[in-house]
Design a protein around this nucleic acid. Structure first.
Length: 890
RNA sequence: GGGCGUUUAGCUCAGCUGGGAGAGCGCUACCCUUACAAGGUAGAUGUCGGGGGUUCGAUCCCCUCAACGCCCACCA
């Protein structure tokens, strides 16, 4: 027992470091995380959204993992066969950049100085070295995943899944190669998908330039934000309904600078109101223009190199960046007198999600996945409630992405990733897809063939994650991993920022490949921000490092803070102060435990016979029972905030503040029988508290369990989760106790207001119309002394004679009189009484008015009317007694 | 340009299908009372963003305005 000091006493403060890693190792080493069939005879599976291999645990991961682990531990205790499957993503672009940068820094070598094989070897080496850093950190969070199931997206299993799916979709014609305009990231020098483009507001300008018309003396004024792309213009377009220009359709315009002759065409797309009504068409570098180009069979000219600089079409500006060229070209146009004017223009420009540089629309040969049909199937699955979003509102985000999908560009010009399994024969120009590297060409048997150099978008393999992690497509592996038990998985837990990156794609791919939904529920949690609601970022330096927090406050407190902030909200503003608050909470529980510890060692954990329970015991068990219900319901529907509040309040306000305090008298008293009974109730409640809390804060609760468990009982992680019990509902005891608490609080309030020293004892007289309640007070005389230092107490019916010259206060059903003793500031007391009176009268009037309102009486439901009636009569009584007391002093 | 969301105590937020507003932290006063000062007891504070409407009754429903935030959209 590590907590005991030299004197064999438990230390006053809880030190999480004493047991966190101890318990994690113990759980892991003894296979407590492995799926095991429990009483539910059903399984429950969550797949961890794979963190990037380059990653360091950030607050978002911590929230992700905490909510997942809470659900898993809850379900495990409920008796489900649970699997929390840990995984990791190769994160193509991110990882390749990191490693490239590192090699450049260390050795001054770029990727181009190496062969593909050499480079990949280096990445794998890097991955082996740093790759499981994040999984080590995850253990500090306490994730109860079965590490035997760990999968990396580049492992053999997922690789086979990727290849199989690719080939099937290819053979079905859904994966195709096409020359199409794509988002080109000039820094990565790769195509990226639409989802990876972020639009940012950029201050630019409209440049007005003159194009001359061949054999015609008019000049066309064209407005553009990108004058440099005129070098790739292959048409000028006007709206065919535009009277200003329609006579020019069919004529030829001449592009300045390169003097290319291009047709003037009519296209409805041109907005007559915008710019000058004349549009330069650059099919090679603009999405709209590309479409126009297709419609009019225009030539497509690519004026850019893969790094975003101008190529030979750039003439004298060749090899310059677009930005630089733009400036010089504008100057040149000015010289030539072709420049009219420019004015500022703020517009949205696409930037690479990873590289943060402006993306260039470029026409290139890429692989695409036709998602049209898959998308509508995925929409339907949610519409039909086959899978549900929690909170439901996120459906809209999902739908908005899937209802107008553009085909997914899945090829990336990178080396790190799943290489596209398409092969090209050098002999016969055959092209085919194959799951396994072929021996020879499928047509001509030639051994001279090459594989497509591109790799797949990282999200392609992630899209298969719901089933490739469980062994698919290999029958043997699927059996080993109990595929049939765990697929479809139960709940997907993730942030809203990847609803379309990941959730939508898993839905599409899984429905397509297996014809089933990937998961039954989708819980979308908040995005973690700093306490001011700002995104955590490196540049702001406002990031919260989970490991720091765990170090400072303990994993349990950190987890509790995250859970307490998680419900159906979209943002979680994490303030370290809060974590520290919950650290205090953990310490509070610890000290409650320290108090009961000496009494419970020889006590049974079993609940005593209900018949023998006294009022206070029934009360606490009733309260415990409600909390149990609340916790079960809340976790079930992902309202972790409610669950945390419920247990927090129970522990602080019920168990510690009242039950333990009320128990002292019993425990230090002489009645052995009551003592034993009270001890077992204290212990029983504490065991339940610890069990209820375990899914949220696993370490400290497991530690407590060691002191609480019976001989032969397993660890807490393997115990059953408490359930609501109808036998433990005690309404009468609950309401009596509430009156009691109210009365005690009021007496304390009076003491405090009158500046009576905490140690001084007082006498009081209680008047009430409720005989039962008076009896209850009589029975609890001793506690008035314990809790409010009341020396003598007299109870009387409300018709009794009030003591003269007494300080008075009242709840709605009890009047409290405190005879004057010593020097008390009467004026102060009268002031207080009058304030109270005013407040009570106001409340009375409000309710009375309502009652007198005919329409209220006609329309309001009976129970509401009854409630108001009762309130009015109680308040009236209270007013009378307050007034009398005021009078007695005047 | 579309869509979504937020606006409740000093701060961060809860308030389910309408019956008179809550929590945590912070703050104030008094207490080192033998579980806990990472604590105890008591206390203060809100025109529930503005305006209008429906209703006997609105923080909750409808309309409108405002502020802030997020997402989507092909850069004329």
């Amino acid at each position: 027992m590590k907590f005991e000091t030299e004197n064999n006493e438990l230390s006053k403060t809880l030190d999480p470091k004493q047991f966190e890693s101890k318990w994690y190792n113990h759980w892991e080493d003894n296979k407590y995380f492995a799926p095991k069939m429990g009483k539910q005879k059903k399984s429950y599976c969550i797949i961890m959204p794979p963190p990037n291999v380059t990653g360091k645990l950030h607050a978002g991961h911590a929230l992700d993992m905490t909510t997942q682990d809470t659900i898993i531990r809850f379900k495990r205790m409920k008796g489900f066969k649970t699997l929390y499957l840990p995984s990791m993503d190769h994160a193509g672009i991110a990882t390749q950049s990191v490693v490239e940068k590192k090699i450049l820094e260390d050795e001054g070598k770029s990727r181009k100085d190496m062969t593909r094989e050499e480079f990949l070897e280096r990445i794998w080496k890097w991955k082996d070295e740093y790759g499981d850093f994040i999984t080590k950190q995850a253990r500090h969070i306490g994730v109860s995943c079965d590490w035997d199931y760990f999968v990396f997206t580049m492992d053999q299993g997922p690789h086979e899944a990727v290849n199989k799916v690719f080939c099937d979709l290819y053979n079905e014609g859904l994966i195709y190669q096409s020359n199409y305009i794509v988002n080109w990231d000039p820094l990565l020098q790769s195509a990226i998908s639409d989802a990876e483009v972020e639009h940012k507001e950029v201050k630019g300008a409209f440049y007005h330039v003159l194009y001359s018309v061949k054999d015609h003396d008019t000049k066309l004024e064209i407005a553009t934000t990108r004058p440099e792309t005129m070098l790739g213009d292959t048409a000028v377009a006007v709206n065919p309904n535009d009277d200003r220009f329609k006579h020019l359709i069919g004529k030829t315009a001449i592009v300045p600078l390169c003097n290319r002759e291009i047709p003037i065409i009519g296209d409805e797309h041109v907005d007559m109101e915008l710019g000058t009504g004349c549009l330069k068409v650059t099919p090679g570098h603009d999405f709209n223009d590309f479409e126009i180009g297709k419609r009019h069979k225009l030539e497509t000219i690519n004026i850019l190199n893969s790094d975003g600089t101008l190529n030979e079409y750039g003439l004298e500006w060749k090899s310059m960046s677009c930005k630089k060229a733009r400036k010089l070209i504008v100057e040149k146009l000015k010289e030539l007198g072709l420049f009219i004017k420019q004015h500022d223009h703020i517009h949205q420009v696409g930037h690479g999600q990873r590289s943060h540089v402006p993306i260039e629309p470029i026409v290139s040969k890429q692989w695409f996945l036709n998602v049209q049909e898959m998308a509508s199937t995925a929409v339907k699955a949610i519409e039909d409630n086959k899978t549900r979003f929690y909170p439901k509102g996120w459906e809209n985000t999902y739908f908005s992405w899937l209802r107008e999908p553009r085909n997914w560009c899945i090829s990336r010009q990178l080396w790190w990733g799943h290489q596209i399994p398409v092969y090209y024969c050098k002999q016969c120009e055959n092209k085919w897809a194959a799951e396994h590297k072929p021996e020879c060409c499928t047509k001509c048997d030639s051994k001279h063939f090459s594989q497509d150099p591109d790799v797949l978008d990282t999200w392609f393999s992630s899209g298969l994650w719901a089933f490739s992690t469980l062994g698919w497509p290999d029958k043997k592996r699927m059996k080993e991993k109990s595929f049939n038990d765990f697929f479809p998985t139960s709940t997907l837990v993730t942030g809203y920022d990847i609803i379309f990156f990941w959730v939508a794609r898993m839905m599409m791919m899984t429905l397509k490949v297996l014809g089933e939904i990937p998961f039954e529920k989708i819980y979308i949690h908040a995005i973690v921000r700093d306490k001011l609601g700002r995104k955590m970022s490196k540049s702001l330096g406002n990031g919260i490092d989970p490991i720091d927090m765990i170090d400072k406050y303990g994993s349990d407190a950190f987890r509790f803070a995250l859970a307490a902030g998680s419900g159906y909200n979209r943002g979680l503003n994490l303030d370290p102060e809060r974590i520290s608050g919950y650290r205090n909470f953990m310490n509070k529980i610890w000290n409650a435990f320290r108090f009961i510890h000496p009494f419970i060692s020889n006590t049974k954990s079993k609940l005593p016979d209900i018949q023998t329970l006294d009022n206070h015991e029934k009360w606490i068990l009733g309260e415990l029972n409600s909390v149990t219900l609340k916790m079960n319901e809340s976790i079930e529907e992902f309202r972790f905030d409610d669950a945390c509040n419920a247990i927090y309040q129970f522990v602080y306000d019920k168990y510690c503040s009242w039950f333990i305090e009320l128990s002292k008298n019993v425990l230090y008293g002489d009645n052995e029988k009551s003592k034993i009974q009270r001890t077992s109730v204290l212990k029983y409640c504490f065991r339940e508290i610890v069990a209820l809390l375990h899914p949220i804060s696993p370490f400290v609760t497991e530690e407590f369990w060691q002191y609480l468990k019976n001989d032969g009982e397993d660890l807490l992680i393997a115990q059953e989760y408490p359930e609501f019990d109808e036998k433990l509902v005690f309404d009468k005891d609950q309401s009596d106790m509430n009156h009691f608490i109210e009365t005690i609080t009021l007496i304390r309030n009076m003491r405090s207001a009158l500046n009576i020293k905490p140690k001084d004892e007082i006498s009081i007289e209680l008047f009430s119309g409720d005989k039962e309640l008076l009896k209850y007070f009589e029975k609890n005389k001793v506690y008035f002394h314990e809790l409010a230092r009341v020396k003598t107490i007299v109870t009387a019916n409300k018709n009794g004679v009030r003591p003269p010259k007494s300080i008075m206060s009242a709840t709605t059903n009890t009047e409290i009189f405190m005879p004057l003793e010593g020097v008390v500031d009467i004026n102060e007391h009268i002031k207080r009484l009058e304030k109270n009176l005013e407040k009570t009268k106001k409340e009375f009037n409000q309710n009375d008015k309502k009652l007198k309102n005919k329409k209220f009486a006609e329309n309001a439901p009976k129970d509401v009317i009854e409630g108001v009636k009762k309130k009015v009569s109680d308040l009236k009584q209270k007013i009378i007694s307050l007034e009398e007391n005021v009078k007695s002093f005047k």
